[in-house]
């Protein structure tokens, strides 16, 4: 376990070995025999699960929570809870209302689901060993999708003023989430924006990049380490991801790790992934051991974090 090893890799530095970061998420609930829907709403269980998983997997870092619905639910978005998954937002308050009509407020540490997470973070920080705690906040386009629904993907092309207004609001929410994770003490804070891979590069540049800047400034002003997580086939927007302003980024199993490594090296960024979460770890179609060896070999020792994709 080595907090500094992970921070160095996340900042694109050369490391003596690749740090290890499992995004255990609700798997922590499984490890301690709890249902995800119970686990995510109980600070004691959250702390217990994270600390247990960190010890079991001998991590260099662990997320406090991996749930991209926290912000939206804390603003009142309707969601379904699941025993084996994070919740999923099903109601979109901006689908047929403006921001003013919906009267959405930026959630603070005292609102919605945040108090449970803040309390869990405090408990983890008191007891954790030499590993980095990561705060993962919902990125602006994913949050905009939760608030507006699928219409946001038409708005970013056909109704840019409205898209700009919604993404501008989401940028403020992201910044507040970054402050909450900063105040918890998270050493690394990442904007997690999976749907940002599902748009064109020019749309990313126009809406996602600016909406991340305030949160990134919060992280950097506090001297913390930043990252941008993206899922899916992000090949077409990877150049934009590299230019967004974070210390590094993380990708999923659908990208070619050699291409990703070369892009990260070109920009001097940290990068993480892309163990085949579905094909190897979940389905077993690819041998997980061989997959790990390939990832480690391709990732190298400059800025690379060994992590699932």
């Amino acid at each position: 376990m080595a907090k500094q090893l992970l921070i160095d890799a996340y900042r694109g530095k050369r490391t003596p070995k690749a740090p290890w970061l499992p995004y255990a998420g609700v798997h922590c609930a499984y490890l301690i025999g709890e249902k995800a829907n119970v686990y995510l709403q109980n600070a004691d269980l959250l702390a217990k699960g994270v600390l247990f998983a960190a010890e079991r997997y001998k991590v260099d870092g662990m997320p406090l929570v991996f749930d991209l619905n926290v912000e939206a639910m804390s603003m009142g978005c309707e969601a379904n809870w699941y025993p084996d998954n994070p919740p999923a937002v099903i109601g979109h308050p901006l689908a047929d209302k403006t921001l003013a009509e919906a009267n959405l407020k930026i959630p603070t540490a005292k609102d919605g689901r945040w108090p449970v997470i803040v309390e869990a973070g405090r408990k983890v920080m008191e007891k954790k060993g030499d590993w980095a705690l990561l705060g993962l906040l919902c990125g602006p386009l994913t949050l905009a999708s939760h608030l507006r629904g699928v219409k946001i993907f038409t708005d970013v092309v056909k109704n840019k003023p409205l898209a700009g207004e919604i993404l501008g609001f989401c940028a403020k929410v992201c910044a507040e989430s970054a402050r909450i994770y900063r105040d918890i003490g998270c050493e690394i804070i990442a904007l997690v924006d999976p749907v940002a891979s599902q748009i064109r590069p020019e749309t990313f540049r126009e809406f996602v990049t600016p909406a991340c800047q305030e949160a990134i400034k919060v992280i950097h002003d506090a001297g913390r380490t930043s990252s941008f997580y993206i899922c899916g086939d992000a090949t077409k927007v990877l150049d934009e991801v590299c230019r967004i302003g974070t210390h590094g980024f993380a990708i999923d199993e659908q990208l070619n790790i050699n291409y990703v490594r070369d892009m990260a090296l070109k920009y001097g960024l940290g990068f993480g992934g892309n163990l085949k979460l579905t094909l190897a770890l979940s389905l077993g179609i690819v041998n997980p051991r061989e997959d790990a060896i390939v990832s480690l070999a391709a990732g190298g020792l400059t800025g690379y974090t060994f992590a699932p994709g």
């Binding site: 998954n85 999923a88 994913t142 629904g149 699928v150 219409k151 993907f153 999976p194 899922c231 579905t278």
Partner: peptide
């Protein structure tokens, strides 16, 4: 999809059709 419950990108790809 990977799983529209688990993956936000999949959720909104599916919603493009269901909506």
């Amino acid at each position: 999809t990977l799983d529209a419950v688990q993956c936000a990108a999949c959720q909104y790809m599916l919603e493009a059709v269901t909506a």
